[in-house]
Nucleic acid binder design. Structure first.
Lengths: 226, 226
DNA sequence: CATGAAACAACCAATATTGAACCAATTATT
DNA sequence: AATAATTGGTTCAATATTGGTTGTTTCATG
């Protein structure tokens, strides 16, 4: 038990949850029996059971009579592993699936407020062509804003994940070579065109732009490898 | 009170708020009882109670008679929140972006071993039309296998995520209504056609099938709402 | 002196914890 | 195959803990 804290079912639950989140207990692993946990935490078995009940409610563990209590929580470190195993080119393959659909839904579902925020992000982007790090951040914000235009929470979440990988990947290293001021301004021409297409609900045009955008990102990447 | 001196309910509130914000007390955790806090802060219980009242006003903690004072402040980690906020229809919108690209990459990159495993999954699927729960599990396995055919770790991860949401969403409830034996057999016709298209590297055909598949899933869902 | 914050104290009602015994399902042992 | 050991599920009553409440006292401040 952490110093300064007092026992009780809620706190035991929090500690076990932390232990699971931190990987002390892996997915599928069996927790110590309730009677052992009771001794470890210096409390009664009923209290431990109450704590486990809370974890079970959260879907962190599952209990089986006669067998034990098992971790059902699936750790997100899977994503980091996938990210490390994924090359920038493969990432573009993934984005080529996600982003056109994102644009499609954005054109369909964006409200006026969404479009206003998208414009703000665009203006910031256009003021950032002097520093490729600032540009990268503004670029992320713009695309995230675009994701929010879809009004689809899952799509927003998905794009966040892909975006984070984008930060981890090799891309991060070659970024400085690719993003010359001229290139950034080229990208921004596309960004503005994309914004206009979304604003005027021109689906065909928007899809065409994002397609070109991804193609260019791909060829830029291939060029940087040389 | 003289300026420059410490003490008083407001200051205790500030200290506790800091402790919570810094993670000394996590969400759901029970704070030490008022009597103990009074001792550690070297003040009376009344003063501590006043401090807790302030925190309660801020929505940082909740108090329950006979139980304790609990931290309600949440450090946003909303992977599951996105899932809960996403309707089955919105999920299909996401899948409509991911799955065609998945099929495209699968046709491009699948090796012979991948295709063999895909066939195994397909056969299992075709033996599962008598129970919609078994069918659902086999269906997941088949599509996951398809994801692995892409040889793109990020795509595999992505599909896993989408798949998990599929399990959480409302879909889970209406599944029983949609998946009649006849419907499962229809789906399997498509599954087999998809398998054949991947095996023979017929990209056009594969994309057409997955498009129809998603369209049908969408209309089935819309039908089930009535 | 009047005021208000704080300390101290006693009690209430709600809740939690404990300890025990026993059940039911699973797993290990013989 | 039969048996024993292990493990989660359940119930109950006694006890401890905890926030809520009320009242009095102390003391620095204006």
């Amino acid at each position: 038990m952490r110093p300064g804290t007092i026992g009780g079912a809620a706190n035991i639950a929090v500690e076990l949850r932390q232990a699971i989140l931190l990987g002390d207990f892996l997915h599928g692993e069996k927790l110590p029996p309730e009677r052992a946990l009771a001794e470890t935490f210096g409390s009664s078995r009923n209290t431990v059971r109450e704590a486990l009940r809370l974890l079970e409610e959260d879907g962190m563990v599952a209990r089986r009579i006669g067998s034990g209590t098992y971790v059902t929580f699936k750790n997100d470190s899977d994503r980091d592993e996938a990210a490390e195993a994924t090359s920038p080119l493969e990432l573009i393959d993934v984005r080529a699936g996600v982003e056109p659909q994102m644009v499609r839904l954005a054109v369909q579902n964006a409200g006026n407020r969404d479009i206003n925020r998208l414009e703000v992000a665009l203006l910031r982007l256009e003021r950032s062509t002097d520093d490729y790090r600032r540009f990268s951040r503004a670029d992320e914000a713009f695309h995230l804003c675009l994701a929010e235009c879809t009004r689809n929470p899952m799509m927003v979440w998905l794009y966040r994940q892909v975006n984070e990988v984008r930060g981890n990947a090799l891309w991060y290293g070659v970024r400085g070579k690719i993003l010359t001021t001229a290139r950034m301004e080229e990208y921004n021409t596309e960004h503005r065109a994309l914004y206009e297409a979304v604003r005027t609900r021109n689906m065909e045009r928007a899809l065409s732009i994002i397609g070109v955008h991804l193609e260019q990102a791909k060829s830029d990447l291939l060029g940087a490898v040389d």
